[in-house]
């Protein structure tokens, strides 16, 4: 695993990718730092960071994760890894940690900002670093999603588009959730649409008509039952579900000074979940 980690980390710096990602982070954060902290005179670097993150992540995450597995498959170098005595979990973890190490370097470049501000006035360093730590862990779960996207295809561009769209969607969830009506009928309609989409996805993945049909029947049955018998349960349910997957919102809490250990656990769990999915995708491909 250590060998895979080292190779992955080095590979980012044997071409431009690592440097571009770090420079991009620095540039985008610097723009927000300039407008929020320097022009508007706010002492909270974390505000600049949280605003910048909605731009930084959709660019940096795909850039750093798109190649992880897609490129290996394209150049068939995965044959070396997958026929070596290493387990797939070791390979995925090695690559993930290699990618995270690059992110860690990028995050380290942000550390001086609060100190620079501190020279010019009073800065609450605790909330600033709580924000930076939140940023890093958000990054940890987003890059696991990016690596998962990369394992789905041998085309880096497609992997990049998938992770970019996912990251953008996740960053838009808070405003999206606020704009959805809480009426049971609307929520019922949205959930039905999701159930139908999941049914097709299930059929596409398993090619098992009965399983897909059973899934559709059970989910739609439950929704109809809830809508008829307990419409209050459906009230605002989409917004509630969205709040569970609102990755960016957890970082907001940390920015406002709530150093919430459950947020860290949440981010690590999301990362673990998607790394697990990645292992499954790669293992399953052997059988196809």
């Amino acid at each position: 695993m250590i060998a895979v980690f080292k190779r992955e980390f080095k590979s980012y710096f044997s071409n431009m990718t690592g440097y571009v990602a770090i420079a991009g982070t620095l540039l985008l954060v610097a723009i927000y730092f300039y407008s929020t902290n320097l022009t508007d005179g706010m002492s909270q670097f974390e505000y600049a960071l949280v605003d910048a993150s909605t731009f930084v992540f959709p660019i940096i995450i795909p850039l750093l994760t798109m190649k992880t597995f897609a490129e290996e498959r394209k150049y068939k170098s995965d044959q070396l890894l997958l026929t070596s005595p290493l387990s797939v979990t070791e390979i995925v973890m090695g690559k993930y940690l290699g990618t995270m190490a690059v992110f860690a370097v990028a995050v380290l470049t942000l550390v001086p900002y609060p100190f620079i501000l501190n020279i010019m006035g009073n800065v609450n360093l605790a909330t600033a670093f709580s924000g930076i730590i939140g940023y890093f862990f958000l990054c940890a779960s987003l890059s696991a999603i990016g690596i998962f996207a990369s394992s789905l295809t041998d085309n880096q561009i497609i992997a990049a588009v998938i992770s970019m769209c996912t990251t953008l969607f996740l960053s838009m969830i808070p405003s999206l959730a606020d704009s959805i009506s809480t009426l049971p009928l609307v929520n019922y309609g949205i959930l039905t649409a999701v159930a139908i989409a999941l049914t097709f996805l299930l059929y596409g993945l398993t090619k098992n008509f009965y399983a897909a049909f059973a899934f559709a029947a059970i989910s739609e049955g439950t929704l109809i039952f809830l809508y008829r018998a307990h419409p209050t349960v459906l009230e605002g349910s989409v917004a509630k579900i969205l709040s569970y997957i609102a990755l960016f919102r957890r970082m907001d809490d940390m920015v406002y000074g709530i150093f919430d250990i459950t947020a860290i656990v949440y981010y690590v769990s999301i990362a673990a979940l998607f790394l697990f999915f990645t292992v499954q995708v790669i293992e399953k491909r052997r059988w196809n």
């Binding site: 590979s11 068939k76 044959q79 890894l81 070596s84």
Partner: peptide, 17 residues
């Protein structure tokens, strides 16, 4: 796998190394 060495059809190389 420990006792197997494999050269696939396309050599599994990392071009940047």
């Amino acid at each position: 796998r420990r006792s197997v060495g494999y050269l696939p059809e396309q050599p599994p190389l990392y071009l940047e190394m």
